[in-house]
Computed example of a mutant assay.
Amino acid sequence: MAIKITDECINCGACEPECPNNAIYEGGIEWKMADGTGVSGAYTLMNGSVTEANTPHDPIAIDVYYISPDKCTECQGFHEEPQCAAVCPVDCCVPDEMYVETVEQLLEKKEKMHL
């Protein structure tokens, strides 16, 4: 399951540098699969669509930081727990029930992003 940032976010930015996948973006900023990953060329997103690694995607949130579920691995293969949640001072980094994934799926996603 990916992590999401709720609207209780105070925009402190503590989470952004902690993400090993560069999946966290400031509100209003476009995201790309290539940002902070080893992805190049075509990449299949969770919804089945194919994108180029450097193609910008619309921001998921405008007013608060957000996490791209296509890049979030809950820090599997990097840390014992999601680092965004560990450092968030207001506990607004929570599991995203819209994106349920097994540990194996999260590790597979990690391997695809960090060849």
Score class of each variant (00 low, 15 high):
2 A>V: 05
4 K>I: 00
5 I>M: 01
5 I>C: 04
7 D>P: 02
9 C>G: 04
9 C>H: 03
9 C>M: 01
10 I>L: 06
10 I>M: 04
10 I>A: 03
12 C>G: 06
14 A>Q: 11
15 C>E: 05
16 E>R: 07
16 E>G: 03
16 E>I: 15
17 P>N: 04
17 P>S: 03
21 N>Y: 10
22 N>G: 14
23 A>C: 14
23 A>W: 02
25 Y>E: 11
26 E>V: 15
27 G>V: 08
28 G>I: 12
29 I>W: 11
30 E>A: 13
33 M>E: 08
34 A>D: 14
35 D>P: 01
35 D>H: 09
36 G>L: 01
36 G>Q: 02
38 G>F: 01
41 G>K: 02
42 A>F: 05
43 Y>S: 09
44 T>W: 02
45 L>H: 08
45 L>P: 09
47 N>L: 08
49 S>V: 14
49 S>L: 14
49 S>D: 15
50 V>L: 05
53 A>P: 08
54 N>I: 05
55 T>D: 15
57 H>L: 13
58 D>K: 09
59 P>N: 13
59 P>H: 13
60 I>E: 10
60 I>A: 13
60 I>Q: 10
61 A>R: 09
61 A>T: 03
62 I>D: 15
62 I>E: 15
63 D>V: 03
64 V>D: 00
64 V>T: 13
67 I>C: 03
67 I>R: 00
68 S>T: 11
71 K>N: 06
72 C>N: 06
73 T>C: 10
75 C>V: 01
76 Q>H: 15
77 G>D: 01
79 H>N: 11
80 E>T: 15
83 Q>D: 04
84 C>W: 02
84 C>V: 04
84 C>S: 09
86 A>Q: 09
87 V>L: 05
88 C>L: 02
90 V>W: 01
93 C>T: 06
93 C>F: 03
94 V>Y: 08
96 D>E: 13
97 E>I: 07
97 E>V: 03
99 Y>Q: 10
102 T>E: 07
102 T>G: 11
103 V>R: 12
104 E>Y: 00
105 Q>R: 07
107 L>F: 00
109 K>F: 01
109 K>R: 15
110 K>Q: 10
111 E>I: 02
112 K>Y: 11
112 K>P: 13
113 M>P: 04
113 M>S: 11
113 M>T: 08
